[in-house]
Design a protein around this nucleic acid. Structure first.
Lengths: 350, 350
DNA sequence: TGTTAGCACTCTTTGTCCCCGAGTGCTAAT
DNA sequence: ATTAGCACTCGGGGACAAAGAGTGCTAACA
């Protein structure tokens, strides 16, 4: 495919195309031949440009909004731009400074760092940022605690090796006393500590059930309560920054579009689907490539952050298809590397 | 003030005013004399109505959008309508059914119930619902746990008598061993269990500090970490339902207004201010009564929920000033009563 | 004296026409 | 191969008119 495209596009077409995309990304206005001919980089007449543009349109890289309008990049055009024409951009001092500020304070909680990353990222880009929090799925159990609140209810608390805490209330079987409960907790910790959360449910029924039976009555009801508590959250947590930034983009002057997009963002399920199926490194999905009608005029750029080779979560920018791809990619690369570094340091010896 | 108004408005003016408000709430269109004269309840001619409307306008209850338009209620008008003309509306079977569904499953977690209430409320009204979660400020400490994650960090967990769990990571002093940590935890629980969260900080430094000194070295660093962990969250948690519902209201076809409102909602601080300064029972703030520029065209109706006489939190509806006050008030009353009942039952013996 | 029919007036909305500007495609000249 | 030139297209904005909804006021009526 790459060779095919290269044989088809001349250098001049490439140049014109690039200038069109760059200009449109900046101004959000269709770009005409006269505007182009005035650019510094371009030394030929508007008529020549018109000819070239007609060819570029025929190839599907640019479109008109109406018969006699200037051109705008098509989705295929953006795809080509992103794949072949993107020159990595250096971050300026101000950007670097702001990113560093995420890690300035000594913070121990992963969630706080992640939340702050989302905030900074949206402030720097004026787009919406989304961070998929660290997966707890393959965390290992550090400790289970059960704290009775009164005769009927107790609260179960799970702590993982990364310091993630989950808790849930449950109903206590009747006639269970503090001693019984302590026994249960001891058994649970003996048997389950160190095991990945994923395997807990299985182990609980296969290994722990037998032991519990020997020590307490009504163990089955109790067991179910605990199993329910232990269940891993279906989705990892999402963090957002600049949810309303999209409202400032000219392509979202139409309330209907805003409603669609906002609804998807609020429901989180859709966002989760968009984010979770990405490979490591930078991923770019343009417009309909996202397979989501609410994303019609949007692009999503994702990057993963990790500890060593273990992918922890995803950090993403949601913007209009007319997005500053180069800048956003640089930023994501930079932040995800920093994030990975800091987290690795924090959890090297977990 | 009440007497003043009663002497000024005739029965007929009252009737006309009420019909204007009711009609405008339904249609969002200015109401003219011809439209009014056709209403069943109204038996006099459009000319008479025009005269009365001129008086009502002079009194400040209604306004024109331009010289020859129909009338819409003014903020003062809504205030009068809400204070004097509201007839409590009975909920229909469908509404009651949906509200009941909040409590259908046996749920133990307060947060889940509250979250679900917000969701149902927004679905029933098509406005935005906001629930200020139960205040943890005056919860009492049930238990403190400290779980070391590795040599350097540990996680402190606080459980309150209502089952609320807070946790925070902190840095361990060097050379502290498991035995020391256990001693610390025992001292903390001995001294602090049962105390209101508010008083913990004080007690920690006044009573516990002395004890810690006898048992472990480096107690001061440890103490600060714990104090930091114990700190009560500045704001109680907010839950939302139907954040995007406002986008469907005709008064929010203007992107600028949407942006203002959404920004305020996202920042939470503003919302918190709006909600927290309300008395128990139903409160209604109309438009500029909210003292918040983003709320220009919005009204906020709040209700409190409680256990016994102790006010726990606030449940609210944010809608356009042109809101179905009667219906919303009935719903809020109904839900807040149910919520109070269920929570009282759940925490009667905490 | 309170009510109402009637009328002149106002203002918004909608549609039409027209013109301007920006841009295109094509042709012919360079 | 490039470009100047020209006819053509389309969207946007202003001017204008007509329609519709509503008002205020006056004069007549019960």
């Amino acid at each position: 495919m790459l060779t095919e495209v290269i044989t088809v596009l001349t250098d001049r077409q490439l140049l014109i195309f690039q200038v069109i995309v760059d200009d449109f990304i900046q101004t959000a206005q269709p770009v005409g031949s006269r505007t182009l001919s005035k650019k510094e980089k371009i030394s030929f007449s508007s008529a020549t440009i018109r000819n070239e543009m007609a060819d570029l349109e025929e190839l599907g890289f640019i479109e008109k909004t109406h018969t006699s309008s200037g051109r705008i990049p098509s989705e295929k055009g953006y795809r080509y731009y992103v794949d072949h024409l993107l020159s990595p951009q250096k971050l300026n001092q101000h950007d670097i400074h702001k990113v560093q500020s995420i890690f300035a304070e000594r913070i121990y909680e992963l969630e706080k760092i992640v939340q702050k990353s989302a905030k900074i990222l949206s402030e720097l880009t004026n787009y919406t940022s989304i961070v998929l929090g660290p997966a707890v799925r393959d965390n290992k159990l550090k400790r289970i605690q059960i704290v009775p609140l009164n005769k009927e209810t107790a609260i179960a608390i799970i702590i993982t090796d990364t310091g993630h805490v989950e808790n849930r209330m449950f109903h206590l079987p009747e006639n269970i006393d503090a001693g019984d409960l302590e026994k249960v907790v001891n058994i649970l910790n003996d048997r389950l500590a160190g095991a990945p959360l994923e395997s807990l449910n299985n182990k609980l029924y296969k290994e722990v059930a037998v032991l519990l039976r020997h020590h307490i009555n009504n163990y089955d009801l109790m067991l179910n309560s605990i199993a329910d508590t232990i269940k891993i959250p279906a989705y990892d947590k999402l963090f957002f920054g600049g949810k309303t930034n999209m409202l400032s983009q000219p392509e979202f002057h139409d309330i209907e579009k805003v409603k669609n997009l906002m609804n998807m963002i609020e429901q989180e399920k859709g966002i989760y689907d968009l984010l979770s199926k990405n490979k490591s490194g930078i991923n770019i999905k343009i417009g309909r490539e996202n397979n989501n009608s609410a994303m019609e005029n949007c692009s999503l750029i994702t990057a993963s952050y990790s500890i060593g080779t273990e992918q922890l979560g995803t950090i993403a920018i949601l913007g209009p298809t007319r997005m500053e791809y180069s800048r956003v990619i640089s930023l994501l690369n930079y932040i995800s590397a920093d994030l990975s570094a800091v987290l690795s340091k924090l959890y090297q010896n977990r």
